[in-house]
Design a binder for these strands. Structure first.
Lengths: 186, 186
DNA sequence: GCGAGTAGAGAACGATCGTTCTCTTCCTGT
DNA sequence: ACAGGAAGAGAACGATCGTTCTCTACTCGC
């Protein structure tokens, strides 16, 4: 087993477990046995649990960014690309493993005691804001539209997570249609 | 010191500490010394930490409901009452102690391992949805407007918490104006 | 004034956590 | 074949958590 395969296995397993149970509820021993690696190898790859947490956040950021962009790129028009954000959310919310945005959750759990986690969550959300702003510019809409759509997306995530239903994605999408229409002056 | 004063002191202190540091990061001993009560009295009032957590959630629910309604009632027209939701958020976000919605945070921290917490968070958000729906009916708007505005409010809370700024309240309010205008057909 | 009951302070307990250490086993080079 | 080192399994360690117990001191009725 390649050394980077071990890292990937550990981070992927940690991602699943942390998402399902929360970061603090998953101990190193549970991660060890779930990933099928020895404790020595675990600490050989990562110096501490917090470094695993940061690696999981990086993985989540990459997964979110790539998945979102893949869905957005399938849309034909700039306006449809803005709405595709909510189609991506809809697909995500329907997954059994969905338990809310991992960055919101890790921020809630560790943001107050871990500046690293808080900062990474902030950067992730900031990059999403910039991504939406980019799509907004391409649609020829005024700048104020981007944070409005981003707030809708954030709200849909927490609403879907806590309510346990995927309804929020469609509701947010309909709201987005109205906001986009108004911003484009149609 | 009255027996209910002790309870109130404990719950108020726990609310502050849990909000500032997260629930799991605050031990019973820290709560004991911050509240200025003996450990025996603490366990005389509450059988366990989780019962304190539930009492804190109840307190937060009451505080949120009363504070929101007080702001809403000051507004003159039904349309202004809908927008007053976001004025309440703006005031909240500006407080130094603001660290995001306590229900979203506790759900993220404990929802996966504590069905009690998850259920209470769900009920709280459901009651907010119903409150917005109530205001929407009074404004003569179609039913679909309520979840749209609620999603905006949720998104503003997480965005403000993670970004560390209060901008999201105003952005959400402007989006709400557009959605309300469209729903009322103006 | 004195004994009984109460309440506070904090020691103690068992569990669990992150992390390290030990012991054993197995593979490899010569 | 055999010495040496890498690696796995899990025991061990110190810290911390929630919870309970002990000991002390004070209060209050008679």
């Amino acid at each position: 087993m390649n050394i980077s395969e071990v890292r990937e296995r550990i981070v992927a397993t940690a991602d699943e477990l942390y998402n399902a149970k929360g970061i603090q509820a998953v101990g190193m021993d549970e991660l060890r046995s779930a990933a099928g690696v020895s404790l020595k190898k675990l600490y050989g790859e990562f110096p501490s649990k917090s470094s695993i947490v940061m690696a999981v956040l990086e993985r989540r950021h990459q997964s979110w960014t790539e998945g979102l962009d893949a869905t957005v790129q399938q849309a034909g028009t700039p306006r449809e690309r803005l709405l595709a954000i909510f189609d991506y959310l809809a697909g995500w919310f329907c997954q059994d493993s969905f338990r809310g945005c991992g960055f919101i959750n890790s921020f809630a759990e560790l943001g107050a005691v871990s500046p690293e986690v808080a900062e990474y969550a902030r950067k992730h959300k900031e990059s999403f804001q910039e991504y939406v702003a980019h799509l907004t510019v391409e649609a020829g809409a005024p700048a104020y539209l981007a944070p409005q759509l981003a707030i809708l997306a954030e709200g849909a995530q927490t609403t879907a997570a806590i309510a346990g239903t995927a309804d929020a994605a469609g509701q947010a999408r309909q709201a987005a249609e109205v906001l986009i229409g108004a911003a484009l002056g149609k």
